[in-house]
């Protein structure tokens, strides 16, 4: 087995493990622990992006997700001062129903992956370098790029308005 394949299995296992620890941690119910495991998930995912030769996206994943978004999450958790939440019992019925539903969905997706032609053609040779991606972004995708900038402005205004003290 070659080194990239070995690294794939390593990163895949670690990603799944930390993702499961985000949603269901048997040792701690503290939201801060979940946020920390979410940071770990993002970091391992960016490792997977590097294995897929998407170097720019790997860097952006670390910068935006593990950096900005998770800092925002931790900031809000600590601002709200969420206590170690008491263990609220989830009804066994809803737990079973949710787990069965999600398990069924997973099975469905896996079956459709194996049945369908996923279109993996030829030897992969693209490199997601900054240069190529930037050129695409400023030619074919110029209009969506500009619209996204407006979206960010709107989100910023909305966040400021929502966190005003005297919300009418």
């Amino acid at each position: 087995m070659s080194a990239p394949d070995l690294l794939f299995y390593l990163f895949a296992g670690l990603t799944l493990l930390s993702a499961l620890l985000v949603v269901a941690n048997p040792f701690s119910r503290n939201p801060v622990t979940s946020a920390m495991f979410l940071v770990l998930t993002m970091v391992f995912l960016s490792g997977l992006f590097v294995l897929l030769h998407a170097f720019f996206l790997a860097a952006v994943q670390i910068l935006v997700y593990a950096g900005a978004v998770m800092v925002l999450f931790l900031f809000v958790i600590m601002l709200l001062d969420v206590k170690e939440e008491e263990r609220r019992r989830i009804k066994a019925f809803s737990l079973g129903l949710g787990a069965t539903g999600v398990g069924g969905l997973f099975l469905l997706i896996v079956i459709s992956i194996f049945k369908g032609e996923s279109g993996a053609g030829g030897y992969p040779r693209i490199e997601g370098s900054t240069f190529e991606l930037g050129r695409l972004l400023f030619t074919n995708y110029l209009l969506p790029f500009e619209i996204v900038s407006v979206l960010l402005l709107v989100a910023m205004v909305g966040a400021i308005l929502l966190s005003k003290k005297d919300l009418k």
């Binding site: 998407a54 996206l57 952006v60 279109g119 053609g121 969506p144 960010l152 989100a155």
Partner: peptide
């Protein structure tokens, strides 16, 4: 994107990351 030799998927991911950041803020 990697296995189809087409960069459009990565541009889409770029936009998804941006929208997710805006969504988290709001």
């Amino acid at each position: 994107s990697r296995f189809n030799n087409n960069l459009d998927g990565q541009v889409m991911v770029f936009f998804i990351i941006t929208v997710a950041a805006a969504e988290v803020a709001v």
